[in-house]
Amino acid sequence: MQLLSLLSKADRYLGRLDMYSEYVHIDLYIRMHIAKEATQSSKIEGTETNMEEAFLDKEEISMEKRDDWEEVQNYISAMNDAVKQLHTLPFSSRLIRQTHKILLRGVRGRHKQPGEYRTSQNWIGGASVNDAVFVPPVHTSIADLMSDIEKFANDELNPLPDLLKVGLIHYQFETIHPFLDGNGRVGRLLITLYLVNRGILKQPILYLSDYFERNRTLYYDNLMRARTHNDINQWLKFFLVGIIEISKIGVKTFDGILQLQRNLEIKIQSFGSRSGEAKRVIEYLYAQPLIDASRIETITGKSKATNYKLLADLEKLEILQEVSGGQRNKLYVFKDYLDLFRSS
């Protein structure tokens, strides 16, 4: 009954979150959601890139942070590509391998068979297979095990509710650990992909990495408990609590965005004849919350002097905040908007 109660609640809150796909120009904000997910998911793997850095160009990132930055960019590309692929491909092994290939392209795991299931034994924790915390199944069984996941995910006759189904898929994927590297990131991506594929979410706006990162020990403990004590109930309860928590946060974030939009519409009126240009800049900032003079030039098509004046006015109204601290090539951040994602 406890599980059923959580399932009912999770369905309800997920429905509320999905509703925002109808009411706000969701495409603008998906980039922010994916950037947040990418930085949080990579953080679980020990990568340190903050949300602002995810929106910088490679040349603007210090050399020692570039590897981390590239992993986050790959995660963003992998999610975008996978959602696009869902229009033509089912939730399948092929989709999973393609997503993995993009994830590991040109980064630290690039020598570990990107896009291919492992052909050797791996393990979790410990220095070798002998003292490992957990040893996944032998590599020769992976094709069959992944085929089972694919069949289970697409079985229309299976009466199991979708949220329990995806909880099991994530658990099973992490237990199989089919790749030599990147299993955690792919496994977390699969949750969102499954929900979009099933039409439970119209857009990829629910990501559990933030919840898993905040409850990292419980996450690993509950996965292990299912393996050692056959206690899948405990894992599913933990998983559903995550969906409820993250859905609530998502709703709060979208409410904050709508409120921010209303406030900005009032502020923009003070720009008079330049309010159209200010509006276009703000529209750009919803998808890309960092900006400089050269980027404003491409948006407005106006002279440098006009653009600098626009930047100064946006800063004066506290819509933008200067973050680079330099006299030249100043970089500005859409702080109130970023804060909605940071605080959630």
Score class of each variant (00 low, 15 high):
Ala226Asp: 09
Ala226Arg: 08
Arg227Leu: 08
Arg227Tyr: 06
His229Val: 14
His229Cys: 13
His229Arg: 09
His229Asn: 13
His229Leu: 14
Asp231Phe: 06
Asp231Ile: 13
Asp231Ser: 06
Ile232Gln: 01
Asn233Thr: 15
Asn233Lys: 11
Gln234Arg: 02
Trp235Tyr: 10
Trp235His: 09
Lys237Pro: 08
Lys237Tyr: 07
Lys237Leu: 10
Phe238Asn: 03
Phe238Gly: 00
Phe238Ala: 06
Phe238Ile: 05
Phe239Met: 00
Phe239Lys: 01
Leu240Val: 12
Leu240Phe: 07
Leu240Gln: 01
Leu240Ile: 11
Leu240Thr: 05
Val241Gly: 06
Val241Ile: 11
Val241Ala: 01
Gly242Tyr: 07
Ile243Gly: 04
Ile243Ala: 03
Glu245Thr: 14
Ile246Met: 12
Ser247Glu: 03
Lys248Asn: 11
Ile249Trp: 10
Ile249Gly: 04
Ile249Glu: 13
Gly250Pro: 11
Gly250Ile: 10
Val251Ser: 03
Val251Lys: 03
Lys252Thr: 15
Lys252Ser: 13
Lys252Met: 12
Lys252Glu: 13
Lys252Gly: 10
Thr253Gly: 03
Thr253Gln: 10
Asp255Leu: 11
Gly256Gln: 02
Gly256Ile: 11
Gly256Val: 12
Ile257Trp: 00
Leu258Gly: 02
Leu258Pro: 00
Leu258Arg: 08
Gln259Val: 15
Gln259Cys: 07
